[in-house]
Design a protein around this nucleic acid. Structure first.
Lengths: 105, 105
DNA sequence: TCTTTAATTCCACTTTTCGTTAATTAATGC
DNA sequence: GCATTAATTAACGAAAAGTGGAATTAAAGA
């Protein structure tokens, strides 16, 4: 079972957090692309992706000899649900969400 | 400066995550209460609180010889903002928020 | 089949984190 | 002033995480 604390631990490493932001921006990307942009070795990148995968933050899809990675929406959902689960802290969130929605119009 | 990755790192430890949940439930609590409930030594608890503090997750207030800890709402806000910042992942969140608000009526 | 490409696992090493006990700081109350 | 309470910092050892290079697996393509 993947706990939320586990999810946070995965996101707690700056390298992995950067990977996640990249995937949120660009959608699905192969491991190779992710590693070629950073100054990490391929093995290091591979291990980070493994951590993210076993924490349920990213998903892996196999296409020929490539591994395509993308964000698992459930993880984002879980974080959101948790951060929103204490009524005390809702008010501001609702205001901001509202503002963001208006901008989008 | 406190980065979000830093915040996640603080929450990534199961002990610290438990502390945060406790504070979200009960509001402000002294260090002593937090440590007496856990099976950790006082110094260990103190260091966890320090990590949470320097990550901006909790606040410390001094009252006589006690240190009272509470959640810093800005941290929850920051997590929320981040998890909500990618339009792709909004739809479900809005549904859930809506449902939660109805329940509250 | 043989070479190339993509990615992972294995191994040795270093750094960081976490926990305990002991010592320290600081405020309270007799 | 002196003992007590609350919490932190100091010192040290054990465990975990993170890294690069080498070896390995697996598919592609000439």
């Amino acid at each position: 079972m993947t706990t939320l604390s586990n999810t946070f631990a995965a996101l707690g490493d700056p390298t992995r957090f950067a990977i996640v932001e990249r995937l949120l921006q660009d959608g699905e990307l192969p491991a190779g692309t992710l590693h070629s942009v950073s100054d990490l070795s391929a093995p290091a990148m591979s291990r980070h992706l493994k951590v993210l995968r076993s924490a349920g933050v990213v998903r892996q899809r196999v296409d020929k000899q490539r591994r395509l990675y993308s964000i698992d929406p459930n993880a984002m959902q879980a974080i959101n649900d948790w951060a929103m689960s204490y009524p005390k802290f809702w008010a501001k969130s609702l205001d901001r969400l509202d503002a963001a929605l208006k901008e989008d119009r």
